[in-house]
Design a protein around this nucleic acid. Structure first.
Length: 706
RNA sequence: GGGGGUGUAGUUCAGUUUGGUUAGAACGCCGGCCUGUCACGCCGGAGGUCGCGAGUUCGAGUCUCGUCGCUCCCGCCA
């Protein structure tokens, strides 16, 4: 069949009635009525009903059609006709017509399926759409079958649309897509690298990029001015539902720009791609500093689709008699709380005290939680009697409390612990009480992040070490000063998920050097790892900045997919394993040999090997004899003598001496009387010629030949 | 790395609380019937090492221990 003669199943309409068409696709479903056979034929465009009936279809074709099973790949020629009155199916787009088959070619038969592919119920009306129930591991193992399902095809097609929209938009804006290396250099900070051994440089490794960070900055030094790339990135960290070891980013960088430029550019881009999913985002996107985000939601990626934001109650309790609060405030702590509006019926005393205060909140890292239910007559709680009248009034006012509300407070000497624990509680309650509205999209820029955060020793970058600080007059040795620095970084957050982030970069060599210094990197280490980059900053590096967007997450959100794995053709599972190809896998020793990886451990014993080194056990094993406990001292003695003897010989042997293969004279002890001989094959080295070589020229033989 | 869930037919799941006859259902599969179905219908059939390994017991899908896979949460993810 010339391909241009082929029609698309899903596009046939009433207007095509009377046409002779050729279709190719897969058997989605069969309904055999004896003489009449209906099939749903599916291709990428959709589904159409094909009828085999003795009245219009040659008998030979009907006989062949009787062999059809689900998912056979077939080609069908036939005539499009309008369906008879009362037999149309409004559930499918082609439901007003059907194709009467005149010819059938079976292009590929199909074995028994590991799971059902047809999304039949989709054609029967949205009300009964089948829930996805097949185990994901099985779906991934047979991903090529899973991908036949219309939902998966739709995901991939719309992902393509989104990526194309991004490319078109950035092209309009003067951005140039440039590819950067996949085989690059490992850098010390950030996530764990995936490593690739080098054959030309044995025992040296490339790293797969965690992001094209340094290269995109070098492109700015290189005068590209506006660069972007839809690029695969790799991070060897433990997986989460929204994480894959390899994932796709929109990476973007521009010179001679500021934050305002990037906000405008990126908001327009985001609005356009969400539009593909029928989602209208309001502009401009609201902005919030990191400090405000933490203070009001306890998260650097606040979900603002619902309220229940924090109120600070520290000042209400400066004179309190309540021991726990008093101690915490004396230690410089703070108290924050949320009002769970109208939830007192769903949050009983028992639930609040035994579940939340004792179990759930401690799980978030806080020591405890104070709860109060707002009643007509005031506050009800296990500890309300410790609070003064003024304090109770203060609480009611501060939280705008009305009868039926529940007020929850967390206090701790650590401000950040109060925030993060209360933030987790806020999200937990929002899910439990179903407070998150569906179909709402709340974009938000989070800005003014701390440049550094405290580490075990000194500080570490909270974004990455190339981020421009808000001020440059800092002392790289002064930790307090460093922790007070803010970065010119920004994250794009949507519905509590971080979709992307970026920053204005450092383009001054001296400043970059001081940042490395602040991070505690030695001069030599910096020179070794980043020397090439610092050097580039010496040659008129332009001011620049950029942003990256997690494509998988964005697509999943736009399409309303449950997981990023639903919008990736061949994802890995939770353990970074590919059930389809069984990767990662072992490789042939020859491959390792070639890469110089066979003896990476050198002569060092393997961990745990020393435990097996009891010489008596070894002797017993190689000699195939059992040694009882009473016999051990004598054996140990004999062994020690043998070892001492061997050492003496070893000392006196000259280096030129050839090794001796046979100490004892050759004699035949098993069959006495016969002349002892050495087998010629042994003499000429042919004996083990066909034995599988183990490694390094040694052969594995049966133990009896030892 | 820590914690929770889970593993039973090709698939999705009951059964495990309280050990006891031949381990069930739905869908799928195989065979037969059926000329208007579209989640077709009817009749019949096959299909199980209850993840794996130990243990307790007269007896284990069920209880105990170990182990492996999958999955969710925390750590981690500049």
């Amino acid at each position: 069949m010339p391909h241009h003669d082929r029609s698309s199943c899903g596009q046939l309409r009433l207007a095509d009635a009377g046409k002779e068409v050729t279709l190719a696709g897969w058997v989605d479903a069969l309904r055999d009525h004896g003489d009449v056979l209906f099939i749903h034929l599916r291709d990428r465009s959709g589904i159409v009903q094909v009828v085999f009936t003795p009245e219009s279809t040659p008998q030979a074709v009907c006989d062949k059609a009787a062999e059809l099973k689900s998912e056979f790949c077939v080609q069908i020629t036939g005539r499009v006709i309008e369906r008879a009155e009362g037999t149309d199916n409004p559930g499918i787009a082609t439901g007003h017509i059907e194709v009467v088959a005149a010819d059938l070619d079976i292009l590929g038969r199909c074995a028994a399926l590991p799971f059902q592919i047809s999304e039949k119920s989709m054609t029967a009306g949205a009300a009964v759409k089948r829930e996805e129930t097949v185990g994901e591991d099985l779906r991934l193992q047979y991903r090529y079958l899973d991908l036949r399902r219309p939902t998966m095809q739709e995901h991939l097609i719309r992902r393509h649309r989104i990526v194309k929209t991004i490319r078109d938009f950035l092209d309009e804006q003067g951005f140039v897509e440039v590819e950067t290396p996949m085989l690059t250099r490992s850098t010390p900070e950030g996530a764990r690298d995936y490593l690739v051994p080098s054959r030309h440089f044995p025992k040296n490794f490339y790293a797969l990029p965690q992001s094209p960070q340094l290269f995109k900055q070098l492109l700015m030094v290189g005068g590209m001015e506006r660069y972007f790339q839809i690029v695969r990135c790799f991070r060897d960290e433990d997986l989460r539902p929204n994480r894959q070891p390899e994932f796709t980013q929109l990476d973007l960088e521009a010179s001679f720009i500021d934050e305002a430029y990037l906000y405008t550019l990126f908001e327009e881009l985001t609005v356009r791609i969400f539009k593909i999913g029928g989602i209208d985002l309001p502009r401009p996107f609201p902005r919030m500093t990191w400090q405000d985000a933490m203070n009001s939601t306890g998260s650097d990626r606040p979900d603002l689709r619902f309220g229940m934001t924090f109120q600070d109650a520290t000042d209400l309790f400066t004179q309190t008699r309540y021991g726990i609060f008093k101690q915490i405030l004396e230690r410089g702590g703070c108290i924050k709380g949320i009002n769970v509006r109208g939830a007192s019926e769903r949050l009983s005393k028992n639930v609040l005290q035994n579940e939340y205060a004792k179990e759930i909140v401690p799980g978030f890292g806080a020591k405890g939680m104070t709860w109060m239910r707002v009643m007509d007559g005031g506050l009800e709680s296990n500890i309300v009697q410790f609070f003064s009248e003024a304090e109770r009034r203060g609480i009611l006012e501060r939280f705008d409390a009305r009868p039926g509300d529940v007020i929850l407070m967390i206090a701790d000497p650590s401000w950040s612990l109060v925030c993060t624990a209360l933030g987790q509680l806020r999200l937990h309650l929002a899910h439990r009480l179903d407070l998150i509205p569906q179909g709402v999209y709340y974009p938000l820029w989070v800005t003014d992040f701390p440049l550094f955060e405290a580490a075990d020793e000194g500080v570490t970058s909270s974004h990455h070490p190339f981020t421009m600080p808000d001020r440059t007059d800092f002392d790289p040795g002064n930790t307090d000063q460093l922790l007070a620095l803010r970065s010119r970084a920004y994250d794009l957050v949507m519905n509590g998920e971080e979709l992307g982030g970026g920053s204005i970069r450092i383009n001054d060599r001296g400043l970059q050097q001081r940042i490395f210094q602040a991070l505690g990197l030695g001069e030599q280490e910096v020179a070794e790892k980043f020397g090439f980059f610092l050097k580039a900053l010496e040659f008129g590096a332009p001011p620049h900045g950029g942003i990256a967007l997690g494509i998988d997450r964005v697509v999943a959100m736009i399409l309303g997919a449950a997981s990023i794995r639903e919008v990736i053709a061949f994802p890995k599972n939770r353990s970074a394993f590919c059930p389809l190809t069984q990767a990662p896998s072992t490789v042939a020793s020859a491959q390792l040999e070639e890469l110089g990886l066979l003896d990476l451990g050198g002569n060092r014993p393997l961990p745990g090997a020393h435990a097996k080194k009891d010489p008596i056990e070894t002797l017993a094993w190689v000699s195939r004899i059992g040694i009882d406990d009473p016999e051990r001292p004598a054996i140990a003695d004999a062994l020690a003598q043998a070892v001492a003897c061997a050492e003496r010989v070893d000392r006196q042997a000259s280096p030129q001496e050839a090794p001796l293969f046979r100490v004892a004279a050759v004699s035949n002890r098993t069959r006495e009387g016969r002349e002892a001989r050495i087998h010629p094959l042994s003499e000429n080295g042919e004996l083990f010629k066909n034995a599988p070589a183990e490694k390094g020229g040694f052969f594995k033989t049966a133990a009896v030949l030892d």
